[in-house]
Design a protein around this nucleic acid. Structure first.
Lengths: 332, 332
DNA sequence: CTGAAAGCGCTAACAG
DNA sequence: CTGTTAGCGCTTTCAG
């Protein structure tokens, strides 16, 4: 049950610990024969270096922290996968933490990850205050934020172009002839939310339509939230013919609500989502939406982190991710 | 940028490292005044103990490994959430690893987690051979397997009652009057698959219906897989009036396929899934399915792991998770 | 109640 | 090319 240590390997191979270390790390000069001798001992004992001990001395753990609001939310697993796949390529492991969008959890989690000596942190949390985060960023590097504005020398940021996505989506609805366009928004304030609403409003203005604040209805960013929000919107404003939603989940819930109201999508109400989750294409009707390449975001975030790790002087950086409009059935 | 160590705190508080350790761990006798003095220094320096160093000496890292085939698959995030939430209650972090159902990745990952000195491993991988896993289990404890049979003194197992679930589901379809019932199965062999097929067959037999092997159609366990499999099944056997699927994703894909074939669910074809993913209730038509409490599975697995950790003599254990039938629109 | 010494398993730096 | 020494930051003895 006791695992072999470098000492055991050294003893079995009849060399010093240092020589074993050199052999397994391909570091420093070492003769072929001793190396083989060592590797034989390694194999015989099933030896694997203790990463904790390695981490203690190298100050590198080959582990990164990934902070997400809720891995259960369809958006995050894909990002997580991107992070992990890219990490694995470089022999990095990922510590995953959920915060439920609670600011205090975000902060607590980040300090906890730092205490665990992760080499870097990728976070999709957006609720903690800039002040708190700045204090943290002063003590820890590197950090990559996804979907949040943040300026700091040790921090890079990856942002989806929420404004452009929303603008594209709503412009398309207008082009289709819709004039009364509602929006189902996330009751829970997020940064991406703000930009999506702005994109929605700008599109209306750009086409000479008036922005009706009451056409924005709050809901949880979930199927249920979308269902409820759409029901409310339509009961108040029956003249509405199209809705743009904060995310696909809300859109799918909204479609269901339209259906339960005895109306048709897209004949009576056109629905446009945001994110392009896997389900969007299979739903009936299939959902028109703004595609966000979630996997690529994760990959990019991890790559960026690795760069900052390799070169601590890497300047901070903001990357904007483009989005595409995906037209399917729900907009007719 | 350099983090404070216990040494720094000791110096600032004018005590020994040991006293600091005692103060922060509430261990051993320590006077109130020195403790306060120490805590003040801790606060001032923003000191947090280095978990690696703690781990080195205590042989506990308060980290567990969670191995899943693919976190992107709707089933796993909920389990992961259960694991994490339960873990957090006990100050445990979770290292998440994907294996894509590749046996060699499963094994590699587990050794890697062991090298990182996780305190335990929860795995949902099912592809590695019993032999390989036994070799591993001989060197590492504790382990909890989810959805795989495995006997070993250091290993506990949590299994969904796949047989019973399938039996319930198909019996229900039969009760509804269906006589020609197909099944969409996972082309990729899994343990749960076997039991679900057995449950399906047993239900048919129990009701005096004949088991037609050709009514089993392979597909990927995804929306696309279900779509393709159903199309194939119906083109071959138009007499079929109901299908039971390996999982909800396949069921949803199947519903879409029925729709695209110009037929109706449930009027022409009844569809029954397995898992009860969040989407099932919102789909149109909403999906009848076998509910599996994924979150509870994760929780239970973590609890079990913690128990085994606290008491290394805990006997291994197999827990069976009951399932419920959820009737919605897709079965009429 | 508090401190000193030892060591977890490994690698960096320096000798030889 | 290989070995020795030191130490990463912490907790566990064991003395005071």
């Amino acid at each position: 049950m006791k695992r072999a240590t470098i000492e055991d390997v050294a003893a079995l191979a009849g060399v010093s610990r240092q020589t074993v270390s050199r052999a397994i790390n391909n570091k420093g000069e070492i003769s072929k024969t001793t190396k083989e001798k060592v590797m034989a001992a390694v194999a015989e004992l099933g030896y694997r270096p203790n990463r904790l001990a390695q981490g203690m001395v190298t100050q590198r753990t080959r582990t990164v922290g990934l902070v997400v609001p809720d891995i259960t939310n369809l958006f995050f697993p894909e990002v997580a996968r991107g992070v992990q796949d890219e990490g694995r390529l470089h022999d990095y492991n990922v510590l995953l933490c959920n915060t439920d969008d609670k600011p205090e959890e975000e902060i607590k989690t980040m300090y906890s990850l730092a205490a665990q000596r992760v080499d870097g942190i990728i976070t999709m949390g957006s609720k903690a205050t800039t002040k708190e985060l700045t204090v943290f960023a002063n003590t820890f590097r590197p950090i990559v934020f996804i979907n949040r504005f943040f300026e700091h020398p040790h921090v890079s940021v990856i942002n989806v172009d929420n404004f452009q996505g929303a603008h594209l989506a709503v412009s398309y609805l207008i082009k289709l002839g819709h004039r009364q366009i509602g929006m189902l928004v996330n009751e829970d304030f997020t940064r991406s939310q703000v930009r999506r609403v702005q994109g929605y409003q700008k599109a209306l203005q750009d086409h000479g339509l008036s922005v009706v604040d009451a056409y924005l209805v709050d809901g949880a960013p979930t199927l249920q939230g979308g269902y409820a929000a759409l029901s409310q919107l339509l009961s108040q404003f029956p003249q509405i013919t199209a809705v743009f939603t904060y995310n696909d989940l809300m859109a799918l819930g909204a479609i269901r609500a339209v259906h339960d109201l005895g109306k048709q999508v897209p004949a009576d109400i056109a629905v446009m989502g945001f994110d392009d989750i896997g389900m969007a294409a299979m739903f009936t009707p299939s959902l028109s939406t703004v595609r966000v390449d979630k996997y690529a975001i994760g990959q990019l975030a991890m790559r960026r982190l690795l760069q900052m790790l390799d070169n601590p002087d890497t300047s901070s950086h903001t990357i904007n991710i483009d989005v595409d409009l995906v037209i399917r059935e729900s907009t007719g």
